[in-house]
Design a binder for these strands. Structure first.
Lengths: 214, 214
DNA sequence: TAAATAGTGTCTCTGAGACACTATACA
DNA sequence: TGTATAGTGTCTCAGAGACACTATTTA
């Protein structure tokens, strides 16, 4: 019988912060060696028979201190198999994404996706390699998009999220046409509450019931 | 210490057969229980510290009986985590692709990608879920494309491969423009040898040295 | 010359990008 | 009325798709 590899699950936890007008990544200070005290992506060892989705939730709740209900969507990215990535020995790392709602009283350090600090293990590489994959999901992967933006949002917020993920801010008219083609997303005629600094109140976009997160 | 999950690697082995004018998948009859005698994708358990690339080669050589040199390119697809997928107990399955050259004296059963027979485990599902991912790689993932078609090929062969993977046969002129934009692929002015049934001899496309498989 | 195959020129349609212009709020 | 924000109409350009037409071989 072959001795099997350990499998860890490392999660890129994303959240849109309307005040910061940016997508944030949740990382946490490591409690134990190796890399104690350094920032790292939340990760756990996959238990025998455990689903990836469950391990993702376990990492987000256990390492970032978020409530289970705040996880709005999850999914796979890629697998990293460099044997020396963990000094304790060879482990496979399955990279996953999770979108979460604004947390209350969590342990996480939230940093802008375009300004992620140095992380432990090979987590810098995981973030770098997975960023294009995440950017590609926006407006194409409906659960990802709905999980990130929530059931209702304005065009300006959609612009902010797009800029955070792709690095480029599209023209509003063009983004509007992109959104018109997203299944389950509809342009409402409802106006959002007025802005603090004046200006025309924005219209609201809404994901229909089957698609929107709880 | 958490008891860790077993990780298996299941490979979708692809090869272009110019005579059949189609992309073929290599499967093999299982030698042992469970599912002894049934066809299955070549797969192995990932050893501790083993790279995915090495496990892929091991599966292709061990289960299909191909030479190591016939593997021209490999890559990741997705991970399947359904706990009941293997009756022996919960295992994670990492699906990978490999492209190979025409084998000599192998154990494999080669079937057209559009006519894959019923397979053991959840391999039907793996093939079904991964087909769109494979189709998406053609002309976009250069190692995949070069591995499948080899260093030199004709437009007609490119049409056959495209039809096998996507289900639709493009117009030659349009496919030519797609290929013009593939980095490392060049349209030569060299004619292939004349055809058995008459007709204009086709031009040859060539992958440049750094890109083409050995 | 007919049949079979290969290759090209070009029209159309769609979607991304760019930008000027219009609309609606607060001070 | 000025400033700040939001939203729209439309031009342009690139790429996908479609197709008619031309080219080169064998029988």
């Amino acid at each position: 019988m072959i001795e099997s590899t350990l499998v860890s699950v490392d999660v890129i936890v994303l959240r849109f912060d309307p005040d910061a007008r940016a997508v944030l990544v949740g990382v946490a200070s490591r409690a134990q060696e190796p890399f104690a005290g350094e920032l790292a992506l939340p990760g756990v060892l996959l238990a025998r028979g455990e689903r990836l989705r469950d391990a993702t939730t376990r990492a987000v709740t256990g390492k970032l201190g978020l409530a289970e209900e705040s996880v709005t969507a999850t999914g796979q990215l890629t697998t990293f198999d460099e044997p020396s990535r963990d000094p304790r020995g060879p482990t496979l790392s399955i990279a996953l994404w999770a979108t979460v709602t604004r947390p209350t009283g969590d342990l996480a350090v939230w940093r802008r996706l375009d300004d992620v600090p140095a992380l432990a293990f090979d987590h810098d590489r995981i973030v770098a390699d997975c960023r294009p994959l995440l950017a590609d999901k926006l407006w194409r992967d409906v659960p990802f998009t709905a999980g990130l933006l929530g059931p209702e949002f304005t065009t300006a917020q959609a612009l902010d999220v797009t800029e955070s993920l792709t690095g480029e801010r599209p023209y509003p008219a063009n983004l509007g046409r992109t959104m018109d083609r997203v299944p389950g997303l509809e342009r409402t005629s409802q106006h959002a509450s007025a802005l603090p600094k004046g200006g025309r109140p924005p219209l609201v976009w809404r994901f229909s019931a089957g698609v929107a997160p709880a």
